[in-house]
Design a protein around this nucleic acid. Structure first.
Lengths: 130, 130
DNA sequence: TGACTCCTCAGACGAGTCGTCTTAGACTTC
DNA sequence: GAAGTCTAAGACGACTCGTCTGAGGAGTCA
């Protein structure tokens, strides 16, 4: 039922980020946080974005109060996973391994990222060894 | 100059895949390979897709002959890199590390992918050790 | 020479998406 | 009951994407 899972657009993501950072919020709070200004049109924009995020099952709405409360229904990490999977599907025949290879071989990694990768691998290696 | 690098759409990707698999080709060859049918409209469609891929600097066109030859101007791996970078930019503030973490922690990985990951890490670990 | 075929090129189409905005009506508060 | 705030529905303009049409050039061959 429903559109399985569609990707989140840029403006929608900005709202979602605000929810991740600030926790459950009202529309007005989100307007302040995302746009830093007020006005009926901006309010309606955020409202529409939340509505679309809701149909994408990315936010949940609490209708019990007089003013609706919104909270994120997906974790950032879950979204990362979806997108990685999408890349794997369209470019690697569904396998995640080429992505991993790409990252591990450090093709586009900064020095800092390479250090972090190394730490990550050592940690994982230790975990598997026992 | 030019639109830096825009993402490749699904239909465009199908053409690009054909170029990766078969090497430099004419439009007609690509039509056969991608659509498996002939006709002026399909021909024009592939032509338009190639034209757009060219402006995105993803294919190169050789105009010297009577019939133009097209070849891929990006590797699959490069495209993977672009998309990973895009995910990192929009979801991780530009850092690739969270992607790596996600993959390494095996959140969405199949058993086979996990085995491959392990092999990959051992290989890398050995390489770094010396 | 003229008909035919195959090509390139420019442009336009219909459908869909995305961010924004307007409006109408319901509810609360004083 | 007037003012202010909320929800809900819908429409807008701009853009993208896959597809298609048509004009014109170049080559071939009877």
């Amino acid at each position: 039922m429903g559109d399985l899972q569609q990707d989140v657009t840029e403006a929608e993501l900005a709202v979602l980020q605000a929810l991740w950072d600030s926790g459950p919020s009202t529309i007005r709070q989100l307007v302040d946080r995302v746009y830093g200004q007020s006005g009926t049109s901006v309010y309606a924009t955020v409202q529409k974005l939340l509505e679309r995020l809701e149909t994408k099952r990315c936010v949940a709405r609490d209708r019990s109060g007089a003013v609706h409360m919104f909270r994120a229904a997906v974790h950032r990490d879950e979204l990362i996973g979806r997108r990685l999977r999408a890349v794997a599907d369209s470019l690697c025949g569904g396998s995640m391994t080429p992505l991993l290879t790409h990252l591990v071989e450090g093709k586009g990694l900064s020095a800092k990222e390479q250090r972090e990768l190394r730490a990550l691998i050592e940690r994982l290696d230790g975990r598997k060894r026992k």
